[in-house]
Design a binder for these strands. Structure first.
Length: 709
DNA sequence: ATTAGGG
DNA sequence: CCCTAAT
């Protein structure tokens, strides 16, 4: 469901990265769609076809993966990504196709690179063996494009033509060798560059590499030939990840990133939108992010306003990850995700590893989690005590003192809008300003336990459970904007969390000594102030800055996939606070507050089940818990499940409010009874008699059944 | 939206 | 309770 929803939201949701299975229809769709009337598309097509040919050849020769035709796609998908990006790829492909045509004109200049980037396109497009067509297409394309591109494009075209010709001839019976040589040369040339790249960060397996290579190369080739523009980055095509390079900053969009097909699709989508959106500055949902390093961002600058689909490919599925990950990022992501689930309407983009860099947004909901990290120094500057710093992991001291060490704080989501031409430096400043604003403006510290805010400031740590090691795992702190700062946005806290709260800046130090902690709605992070500040757009354009960034990114943050607007040190700093990995829950969407079933509720439940049977939770809910809004049918079902379990275990093992044995007996009776009547459940009414017969003594059911009768 | 199960 | 998957 969720998935679905997400998809719905984002029509082309590649972000849906999760499902291997999902996109059947989509996939199918792809093929047919291929082309369009307009020559525009054709260009792509041609390129694609070319690439494809090459690819095919390559594929054929190599045993590794499937063969070219129908399979390549699949093959690619499989091989290509282990990291979950694969789904995206698939989806992407689809998208590309779907949308491909529309943006051609806009994207012309980049088309070449785009194509390259998109393996999918390459693979998908049917071959076009008509040179004339190609030419036409090219022309058309070029004409469409503004003058600036024209020249390049043409040359490019020509080249492509040539290339194609060559290939074709081969394909048509020419000597294979020739083709190969060609290809190889291209490849080699390309290779150099590529190799430099950290390469798929090792993430891609060989197979993948191989496959992608071809297309990539092709792609690369084109641009290279034509493009004098250094903008086109070959490398970008491939690096799927972390070392992302920034795409060049052009006025246009940056392309270049093959690794993320997402980009492409996004790109495509946006292309059209961009114009429209440009100035938009919606406070609420739209967020723009400018991110540096993240791969997604490469093409981003342009996408100002679009919503970024969340591409955290695998995240979702990572329920398990959450459990096992000890990695901050992952956890964080998870958190984000969850949170998102709760309130988020627009998704945020997070991709593997990237979120730290996320730039930001300000929606209250998602907000609190996304964060940017702030350096410890900053925190201190703001009055955080030294105790705040340190390492994560809470320790329980021997004495009665509870030691907390907060490694870092997360900063709430910040909404930043920067012009495309802004320099990286300016972006950094902007971000810094935003962060500073938050800190400077006053923040409150919130304490989370098990994901829930601990609001009672008067309770002692012991009372709150914070003195217990177990709970420390789930302890989290939040820095929330003080009411002063974020008053403007009505923040909505998920459950019962009211926003307001205590006085603003309570420092951790205080928490240490004082039993009382401030708590508040973690969500409330947003701050208008930030928005305001961040709104300043930076206009200067400085490519060099960008390159610096790249460097920075690559070098300083080898493994952080995030980008770095801030110095590396900062990155760490801001990370999430959870002392323990386990605590991840703490800050995310909070878990619903626990509401143990009372005996009376249990009784009602038992009664209802006796009458209705299991498997009809909705009816149970309606019948007996209609007014208990906090009890969903799922809750009832779960409760029943636990009741059954409870009834089966020894009384000594039972915990919580004891449930009368009588009820437990009924539970067992009803459970066993209904388990035998699964088939008849639906027809229960009609079969009532049968039931009686079959399970007369079994339980109270008899009584209930009787009622029904 | 429900239901079923696993976690 | 949460999360997913399958309806």
């Amino acid at each position: 469901m969720k998935l679905k929803k997400r998809l719905d939201r984002r029509p082309h949701g590649f972000h849906v990265a999760i499902i291997p299975k999902a996109p059947r229809s989509v996939r199918r769709r792809v093929q047919p769609k291929k082309i369009d009337e307009d020559g525009e598309v054709c260009a792509f097509e041609l390129l694609a076809s070319l690439a494809r040919q090459i690819l095919e050849e390559e594929t054929e020769s190599s045993s590794a993966s499937s063969n070219a035709s129908g399979n390549d796609r699949a093959a690619i998908g499989k091989d290509a990504v282990e990291d979950g990006r694969q789904y995206e790829d698939k989806l992407m492909k689809t998208e590309c196709l779907d949308q491909g045509s529309c943006e051609v004109s806009a994207v012309v200049s980049e088309s070449a690179s785009l194509n390259c980037n998109q393996k999918c396109l390459l693979n998908e497009f049917p071959l076009v063996e008509d040179d004339d067509m190609l030419e036409r297409t090219l022309k058309t394309t070029s004409s469409n494009s503004s003058g600036k591109i024209g020249g390049d494009l043409k040359s490019e075209i020509c080249k492509s033509n040539m290339l194609e010709g060559n290939f074709l001839s081969k394909a048509e019976g020419g000597s294979p060798n020739y083709r190969e040589s060609c290809f190889n040369s291209m490849e080699n040339a390309f290779e150099q560059q590529v190799e430099t790249k950290a390469m798929e960060t090792g993430g891609l397996n060989t197979a993948t590499t191989r496959i992608s290579k071809d297309p990539t190369e092709l792609c690369m080739t084109f641009p290279a030939l034509t493009d004098s523009d250094k903008d086109v980055k070959l490398p970008s095509c491939r690096d799927p990840v972390p070392n992302a390079t920034f795409s060049r900053h052009r006025n246009d969009i940056k392309l270049g990133i093959r690794d993320d097909d997402d980009n492409l699709s996004r790109f495509n989508k946006f292309t059209n939108k961009l114009k429209v959106y440009r100035p938009v500055t919606r406070i609420g949902d739209r967020r723009i992010r400018k991110l540096l390093t993240s791969k997604y961002w490469k093409s981003a600058p342009r996408l100002k306003d679009f919503e970024h689909p969340r591409t955290d490919g695998g995240m979702r599925p990572s329920h398990r990850k959450r459990k096992t990950c000890y990695n901050h990022e992952k956890c964080h992501r998870d958190v984000l995700y969850k949170r998102r689930r709760f309130y988020d309407r627009s998704s945020v983009e997070t991709f593997d590893g990237g979120f730290s860099c996320e730039s930001v947004t300000n929606s209250p909901e998602k907000g609190r989690n996304r964060d940017k990290s702030i350096s410890g120094s900053m925190l201190q500057a703001n009055g955080m005590t030294s105790s705040v710093k340190g390492h994560q992991s809470s320790l329980h001291s021997k004495d009665s003192n509870v030691k907390f060490s907060i490694k870092s704080f997360k900063v709430p989501e910040i909404f930043i809008e920067v012009s495309e031409t802004a320099t990286v430096g300016s972006l950094k400043r902007t971000v810094m300003d935003a962060v500073t604003a938050i800190l400077g403006g006053g923040i409150r510290v919130g304490v989370l336990m098990h994901g829930k805010k601990v609001r009672d400031d008067n309770r002692t740590l012991s009372q709150t459970g914070l003195a217990s090691e177990d709970n420390l795992d789930t302890l989290g702190f939040t820095l929330d904007p003080s009411s002063v700062e974020a008053p403007a946005l009505p923040l909505v806290c998920p459950e019962d969390t009211p926003l307001l709260l205590s006085d603003a800046p309570q420092l951790v130090a205080r928490s240490l000594e004082t039993p009382a902690l401030d708590s508040e709605c973690p969500n409330a992070l947003t701050d208008l102030a930030l928005l305001t500040k961040t709104e300043t757009l930076v206009e200067s354009n400085d490519e060099q800055a960008i390159s610096h960034t790249d460097i920075l990114t690559d070098t300083t943050l080898p493994d952080s996939r995030a980008l770095v607007a801030l110095p590396a040190s900062n990155v760490e700093a801001l990370a999430v606070v959870p002392l323990n990995q386990k605590s991840r829950r703490s800050d995310m969407a909070q878990r619903r507050t626990r509401r143990p079933f009372s005996v009376s509720e249990v009784e009602a439940l038992v009664q209802a089940v006796e009458e209705l049977g299991t498997g009809r939770w909705r009816d149970v809910k309606l019948r007996s818990f209609e007014d208990a809004d906090h009890r969903t049918y799922v809750d009832l079902k779960d409760k029943w499940k636990t009741l059954v379990h409870t009834a089966r275990i020894a009384p000594q093992q039972r915990r919580g409010e004891p449930v009368p044995q009588e009820l437990l007996d009924r539970v067992l009776a009803a459970h066993s009874y209904w388990s035998q009547h699964q088939a008849k459940q639906q027809g229960k009414h009609q079969v009532a008699g049968v039931l009686k017969i079959e399970a007369p003594t079994d339980h109270p059911n008899g009584a209930t059944t009787g009622n029904q009768l």
